[in-house]
Design a protein around this nucleic acid. Structure first.
Lengths: 223, 223
DNA sequence: GCACACATACTGTGATCACAGTTGTGAGTA
DNA sequence: TACTCACAACTGTGATCACAGTATGTGTGC
């Protein structure tokens, strides 16, 4: 996160400005703070952050390089807009990778960690009841990534994290529109149960299901 | 590729210099032109390419952001060195993703494309006999990626391509050392046959096998 | 002969400027 | 009213400079 002082970003020891801005924007994408299709320009962002254009420029080129932003030549950077095929492709890869990560994680998770999963799952149900979408999105992130972290494969973790930032803007849109299927909430609890039962295959299967409903959702959507 | 004139890079219409340099370096990593652990500095690369530091700097930050290069704070960029756990993790993800891509590709490939696969496979055997490692590496790339392209999932394709650039330096090392197992060559022909038989599961299984022998190879290696 | 210190030559990072290309708007005309 | 043309306000891109670290190598003192 960025540390602000006098309304502008203060340099943290040893962490380059460009890196802070990069992390900041990546997180914003993940939790869906940017609407699909919205534009980000170097200079206006730099002005908002109180830095020169340089570190912002670096952050944006990095994000574009990871396909988290679209960069047309000589045009401003923008968040991808909802092209059904593209988004469906992304959720397909997500479903597979997150299923794999889950089955890897099952033997590694402690009962304490599984307790926390179940607690998160029940809190998420309450978030939905209270219409607290922002809290729901963050808890959803924590639920999934505490599993993926337990998988113990850095490259897998990072790849999934990247995909979340890529699909974040679309997923947040669905959550905020309350377009989630009724039985979606039960899935999280079931996943925790399957992990507790040390049933790797079933846990992975549920996880794939959790992700891939989105595949169909976006596949049938018009732009 | 970069177009050279008077020993320096000439700007191609519409393609930013930084992008050309980025593509150039990424390909060099993929085919193993850089030894694990070697250092790349902005200014010296810029001098070699005949440009200012700016576009090189952008290319390197992009590569580091995709984890194709390591960037310690305030120290020069470098190609990752061979840490067994890390490399094994990478090949694990590769095996899974390339298996998935293969099974997706099976129903999509034309007989003409499969013919080309078999031709590539037999040429690769000859490359080994002739000790032409560079040609072998490029043909190996073409063999695999013509399959992955047929899978028809852009995100999957890009993710695999990134992983190849990541593992390129290590794989090339093995190829050049001629450390490949005897039965490895037959695998490529078998994969083509399985695709021709439209046996998606078997093709995927063979593909996973093709990748994952490396997992064990590097896992047992000392740094 | 060895160890410590200082100078030098690097490293990435941030800021600033110049440039060319695109977009959008407003005035002038048919 | 509609269309066109020009100008102004953007856009990213490349080059250059200043700076603060770090590693290296050399010379000096013991």
């Amino acid at each position: 996160m960025l540390q602000r002082q006098n309304g502008s970003i203060k340099r943290l020891a040893q962490t380059p400005l460009s890196d802070q801005i990069y992390q900041n924007l990546k997180w914003s994408l993940t939790i869906g703070e940017y609407v699909p299709g919205s534009e980000l320009s170097i200079r206006s962002l730099a002005k908002k952050m109180g830095t020169s254009a340089m570190p912002v420029r670096e952050a944006l080129t990095r994000l574009a390089s990871e396909r988290l932003l679209i960069s047309a030549t000589n045009r401003s950077y923008k968040v991808a807009s909802l092209e059904p095929k593209r988004v469906a492709d992304q959720f397909f890869v997500r479903a597979r990778l997150e299923g794999i990560a889950t089955s890897l994680a099952v033997p590694n998770m402690t009962t304490r960690q599984i307790d926390q999963l179940e607690e998160l799952a029940s809190m998420m149900v309450k978030d939905i009841e209270k219409d607290d979408n922002e809290s729901y999105i963050v808890r959803n992130y924590n639920f999934h990534f505490s599993i993926y972290e337990a998988a113990g494969n850095d490259e897998l973790f990072w790849t999934i994290e990247r995909l979340w930032a890529q699909t974040g803007p679309f997923l947040a849109h669905v959550v905020r529109e309350q377009d989630m299927p009724q039985d979606w909430q039960i899935l999280h609890t079931d996943i925790a149960k399957a992990i507790r039962a040390r049933d790797a295959d079933y846990a992975a299967q549920l996880m794939e299901k959790d992700i891939s409903w989105s595949t169909h959702t976006f596949q049938d959507m018009d732009t």
